[in-house]
Computed example of a mutant assay.
Amino acid sequence: MAELSLILREIIGPVFVMMLLGFIMQIKFKLDLSTLAKINIYFLAPGFIFNALYHAEFSGGFFFKIFFFFVLFVIILFILSRLLGKIIKLDRNRQTLFTNSAIFYNSGNYGIPVNALVFQGNPLAMSIQVIALTFQNMFIFSYGIFSLRAANKGTLKAMLGYFRMPVLYGLLAGILLNVFNVPLPDFVLVPANYIADSMIAIALLTLGAQVATIKLTKGLSIVYLSLVVRLICGPLIAYFMIIVFGIEGITAQALFIASAMPTSVNSSVIAQEYSDDPAFATQTVLFSTLASAVTVTVVIYLARLLF
């Protein structure tokens, strides 16, 4: 009970304060959600990813081992969610949103604070969470956008459209400048830091504004199923992967806890811009974040017990 109270106060509380501000502003001012989504996708996300990758410090071997773990983890979740979608006969757009709700999880404004709280700033544990964050941001603003565009406009148009996305070039620039150790002047680095620092706040503000516009519909069974896949099946899959790969100690605990995060706020942001049904994405983020107060606490307890 003490851990649950701590997580609710230190992690969930700040998240919902920002969402509440967005909710209130939407009610009072009727914000343009499409413009907010564009600010997130075309301005904040490229700057955030560039800044994170430019400043990243990882040993190559460790980075790629952890990165491979998360890639395999997402592939398994992708296959599971696709199979479930076919079984319950979802249409193409809803299938894409359902899959995205399972494979995109909140490694940043939720995962980073949880990791810091559990491991008390342990550098090994935090480096694992940062790799998870890097992978998720690269993935959601590449495949995530591509999948939604493909569902509505076809694969070829989606592919061509992605090459016009600034996220791709922010990603490449961050990696290349880091690898070749290219120093950048302050008039570039300072704005990049400003952009990176503002992304979480604006993303949560956008989510709160989206919540204010949706009406909870009947037939939320698909949303509930997405919660089961993300919050329960996710950690179970990660647990068996950890056992199979023989991972132990803090690394095992950090990977297990990282797998339990709720659906990413950014999955709702990109759905607002590219999907015909953004309300479904917003509902999965909202309910997933609420339910995670219980499930993440259980996972933290099990991580300490099992590894």
Rank of each mutant, 00 (worst) to 15 (best):
N122Q: 13
P14T: 11
L8M: 14
L36M: 14
S288V: 03
T284P: 01
S292V: 07
Q210L: 11
V182G: 08
D186Y: 04
L33V: 12
S221Y: 10
K86A: 09
A279S: 14
M199I: 07
L117C: 03
I232R: 06
L189C: 02
F180I: 01
T295Y: 07
G60A: 07
E248N: 08
I214E: 04
K215F: 08
A37R: 01
P166H: 06
V285N: 00
S267G: 14
P262N: 05
F67Y: 15
T206R: 03
I66R: 05
I79A: 15
L290Q: 04
T96M: 10
I41L: 12
L302M: 13
L171F: 15
I250W: 04
L133D: 09
P14I: 10
T289F: 01
A271I: 09
L4T: 05
K153D: 10
L36C: 12
F43M: 12
F78A: 11
F43G: 03
L231R: 06
P113D: 05
I41W: 01
L220R: 07
I88M: 12
I195S: 00
N266D: 12
V167D: 00
D91K: 15
G85K: 03
G144C: 11
H55C: 01
C233P: 02
M261C: 11
Y194G: 05
N181V: 05
L83N: 12
S127G: 13
T206M: 12
T99M: 13
E3T: 15
F50S: 03
N122M: 11
Q95F: 08
M18V: 08
N122S: 15
G13V: 10
L305F: 14
V17P: 02
I103A: 14
L172M: 13
A258T: 13
L255C: 06
F104N: 14
F180G: 03
I39Y: 11
N152C: 02
I243R: 14
F287C: 10
I76N: 05
T263W: 01
I257G: 09
F43P: 02
L216K: 13
L220F: 06
P262C: 07
F287V: 07
L227G: 02
M241P: 11
Q253M: 12
P46I: 07
Y54D: 01
I214K: 06
S142D: 00
N178G: 10
L306G: 02
I41D: 02
G249R: 06
L8S: 07
Y162D: 05
M1A: 09
V298M: 08
L117A: 03
L168P: 07
A173H: 07
I87T: 14
L255A: 10
F245M: 15
A258L: 07
V17E: 00
